[in-house]
């Protein structure tokens, strides 16, 4: 019995103490500092050694030279269309079309990618496999959506509202001062409401990415089993110099 009382006592004391403790502590002072991980900081040896085998097995492939960039290009260089975005969309048009034709006996009318999908710029100089991985780290596939003219129109309206240099190819968009859609064309032609068009894009966008809702209304999405990154690597290998330009494909009056 005595033992129980002692135990109970300890229990109560602890209980009270932890109760007090609860009310006792409050934040008196807060300090903060966001520390730059500077070049001069030494690397932890054991961690570096741990990474080494993972690193070396991918290094050889990554360092393979593919092409040469005549100038540096970043996705925010210009407001309505960018050299790097134009290169990517044009590369998709050029490289995906033969595959699509071969497999599905049709041709691509235009290409739409997303500005956010350009994950890095390209610096002037040698383009390697690593560059392609930096620009397109994701495993996204190129797909072709069959859209009715009505949905193509929605696509152009989306582009005017987005106020972003989403990469496009083989189409043109003109917006007015208030970003309202003024003019557009696909494959050099006007878009007819009831005709079908083939827009090459990525599986990310066709699945609702970046709220490109018009893609969800596609009556068919054709697979061509071509990763966007692989396509870029192939494009770089086919072109020994890369020097894309900004043009009038998306312009604001």
């Amino acid at each position: 019995m005595k033992r129980y009382i002692i135990f109970l006592n300890i229990f109560l004391t602890l209980g009270l103490w932890s109760c007090n403790k609860k009310n006792e502590k409050e934040v008196q002072i807060v300090k903060a500092q966001n520390i730059l991980v500077e070049e001069s900081i030494s690397e932890n040896d054991s961690l570096k050694k741990f990474i080494e085998p993972y690193k070396s097995s991918i290094e050889d492939e990554m360092n393979k030279p593919l092409s040469y960039a005549q100038t540096s290009m970043r996705k925010n260089d210009t407001p309505y269309n960018t050299a790097i975005g134009n290169m990517m969309a044009d590369a998709v048009f050029e490289m995906a079309n033969p595959v699509f034709m071969n497999r599905h006996k049709n041709s691509i009318d235009g290409v739409l990618l997303n500005h956010g999908g350009i994950r890095a710029g390209i610096s002037k100089g040698v383009i390697t496999t690593r560059t392609a991985y930096q620009v397109m780290p994701f495993e996204n596939l190129v797909v072709v959506a069959r859209l009715k003219g009505m949905q193509v129109k929605e696509m152009f309206e989306y582009l005017s509202r987005a106020k972003k240099a989403h990469p496009v190819s083989n189409m043109s968009v003109v917006v007015d001062d208030d970003w309202s859609l003024e003019d557009y064309s696909l494959n050099g032609n006007n878009v007819k409401d009831d005709e079908y068009y083939h827009i090459a894009t990525s599986d990310y966008l066709v699945n609702g990415g970046d709220n490109m809702k018009f893609f969800q209304k596609a009556d068919t999405v054709y697979q061509i089993d071509y990763k966007l990154r692989t396509l870029l690597i192939d494009y770089f290998q086919q072109n020994d110099t890369i020097n894309p330009k900004v043009d009038d494909r998306f312009k604001k009056n």
Binding site: N23, E24, K25, E26, V27, Q28, I29, V30, K31, A32, Q33, N34, I35, L36, V37
Partner: peptide, 27 residues
């Protein structure tokens, strides 16, 4: 990209130890 490491230091004490009840932010 791990360019920065955020650091926040909290100093906790009992309420009655300090006359000021306001948390002091030294940011």
């Amino acid at each position: 990209a791990g360019l920065y490491l955020g650091r926040i230091d909290f100093y906790l004490g009992s309420r009655d130890q300090h006359t000021s009840k306001e948390t002091v932010f030294e940011l």
